[in-house]
């Protein structure tokens, strides 16, 4: 009854709410943990101590280099057709504006296609994208590519409707990318409300002028670490089940949900297993990634360093899409491996979360999954998750200890059973 013991300990027993309380301690002490920031390095040092004090094994920090970008002061004021200050959040890696800002007329479009159709109008303008939210993966392209597509046409800045299914005047930040050969222009997100307002104004033929000021600046890459802790396997110690979340966050809110929740239920999984005196046959390895929000930068360097042992990785797991009440496990792997994971998830019947979905993935574990290692992630309440994602609302207030208990129990059962099975998961 190992599975029941883990579930009871996590959901009903002494470990109840531990991951929530541990997370609160860290985020209240450190705050948001932007890549390259002192906060992030402080959080990593605290976690190093936490994991050692928790009695986990082989606790160490693996040095990597991650991007260092700082937001600076930023503001946007609509000057015409009326004066209105707008909430914005500059996008990661964006350049700043001159000190006096950029004041220009706005061209509002609702898609890249419309921008192409109206290309001659874009020169010298601030392009505002009022793209409707479809889902995160397709809509995020506007945040990532909005500046480049506008700059190609001579735009002087871009403002992009926040990528979120729900807004209470909440701007959402995130990474964006420039492209070689295309001029770099400042880019920021605006709220859904302001994007729709300007779209409405434009449809009535109003002339819209915005003054945009951004103090964003990029610096040379910073030193950071992936944080590692283990329960070393009793029989096949060289083989690994990797359980992970990322410690870095954006510089908004507290980074509690993204990805404090994922990092701390992953730690909790090892703590639960250790509490019960269990030691799986394979090594259970916790990795708390750094530089995830910049595109899995820390994880890529881990992959480069460890890929020589790829055949020893039975399963890679990342929780990075919320730790509310999960509805199941997402899994990527061969049909046989999927059938095995369906058997494993039956063990979660006591908490009635037994489903296996497709698309197990995570920015930090996708390097392994693309090379054939089975991968898993939690399927969670994505509407709620993306409503708070990368916004000032990403705080402990959105987290729920009971939901974290359940998520941790699922994470612990899956990682332990796969780590303790006599054989590794098959690959196609």
């Amino acid at each position: 009854d190992v599975a029941k013991a883990i579930i009871n300990h996590a959901v009903y027993g002494k470990a109840q709410n531990r991951s929530y309380e541990r997370l609160a301690l860290l985020v209240y002490a450190v705050g948001p943990r932007l890549s390259g920031s002192k906060n992030l390095e402080k959080a990593i040092q605290i976690m190093y101590q936490n994991l050692r004090e928790d009695g986990l094994e082989n606790v160490h920090l693996e040095p990597v280099k991650i991007p260092h970008w700082e937001r600076g002061e930023e503001s946007a004021v609509m000057l015409e057709p009326r004066i209105q200050k707008m909430a914005i959040l500059g996008l990661g890696s964006s350049i700043g504006t001159p000190p006096e800002g950029i004041t220009a007329e706005v061209l509002v479009v609702t898609s890249f296609d419309e921008l192409q159709r109206r290309a001659p109008e874009a020169r010298g303008k601030i392009v505002v994208y009022n793209q409707p939210y479809v889902n995160y993966s397709s809509t995020v392209l506007y945040r990532v590519r909005g500046a480049v597509e506008a700059a190609r046409l001579g735009a002087v800045a871009s403002l992009i409707r926040s990528v979120t299914p729900f807004s209470i005047y909440s701007p959402h930040t995130g990474i964006q990318e420039y492209q070689d050969g295309v001029p770099k222009i400042p880019t920021a997100c605006i709220t859904v409300e302001d994007a729709e307002m300007m779209s409405g104004m434009a449809s009535y033929g109003a002339r819209i002028i915005i003054q945009l000021k951004m103090g964003a600046k990029s610096y040379p890459d910073a030193d950071s670490f992936n944080t590692v802790a283990e329960i070393i396997g009793s029989k096949y110690p060289e083989q690994v089940v990797l359980v992970s979340g990322h410690l870095d966050s954006w510089d908004v809110g507290q980074g509690a949900m993204d990805d404090g929740g994922g990092a701390f239920i992953s730690w909790e999984a090892l703590s639960l297993i250790k509490d019960l005196g269990l030691r799986p046959k394979r090594t259970l390895r916790l990795v708390l990634w750094t530089g995830e929000e910049q595109g899995g930068v820390g994880a890529f360097q881990y992959y480069q360093l460890h890929k020589a042992n790829i055949s020893n990785y039975s399963l890679v797991m990342e929780s990075d899409s919320g730790t509310f009440l999960p509805s199941g496990l997402q899994f990527t792997g061969s049909d046989k491996a999927r059938a095995i994971m369906e058997e494993v998830m039956r063990l979660l019947q006591p908490i009635n979360i037994t489903q296996v979905f497709r698309n197990g993935e995570g920015t930090d574990i996708n390097y392994w999954i693309q090379d054939g290692v089975p991968g898993a992630s939690l399927l969670d309440d994505l509407y709620k998750y993306f409503s708070f994602h990368h916004s000032h609302g990403d705080t402990m207030t959105v987290m729920d200890p009971k939901e974290m208990n359940v998520a941790a129990a699922l994470w612990a059962v899956v990682s332990y059973v796969v780590a303790d099975m006599e054989e590794m998961l098959p690959r196609s």
Binding site: S311, E343, P426
Partner: peptide, 24 residues
């Protein structure tokens, strides 16, 4: 030495099923 397999026979799968059930 890695011992993952590229596939699992039905009988092996049955064994794995029973092994997993033992955790419950």
């Amino acid at each position: 030495k890695a011992i993952y397999r590229n596939d699992v026979s039905q009988s092996a799968f049955q064994e794995i099923k029973e092994e997993i059930a033992s955790y419950g």
